[in-house]
């Protein structure tokens, strides 16, 4: 899942080396925390969250077929 998120996000940003994903997991869910360079935050969120929504749609589609737990993608600076 981490490498899917990286594959999606890195080509969208100006500083791919600053793309970081932290994972937190409990019994019910897995939270992926995506952090990008400050300059790139707007790019991964997009106008009215359009890009963030597209990233989540692809990630959650994959999660439904591979993960039993609920997957959440958080985007932060």
């Amino acid at each position: 899942m981490k490498s899917l998120i990286k594959t999606i996000v890195e080509p969208l940003v100006d500083f791919p080396e600053d793309v970081q994903i932290d994972v937190k997991e409990d019994e019910r869910r897995i939270i992926y925390k995506l952090a990008v360079n400050k300059e790139d935050v707007g790019k991964v969120i997009g106008k009215q969250g359009r890009v963030a929504k597209a990233i989540r749609t692809v990630v959650y589609a994959h999660a439904r077929t591979t993960e039993k737990k609920r997957v959440i993608l958080e985007i932060s600076e």
Binding site: L12, V51, A54, I55, T57, A61
Partner: peptide, 12 residues
């Protein structure tokens, strides 16, 4: 929705 999301990302 998945096809549309991939379309949005590809366009970027």
């Amino acid at each position: 929705q998945t096809l549309n999301a991939l379309q949005t990302l590809s366009q970027l």
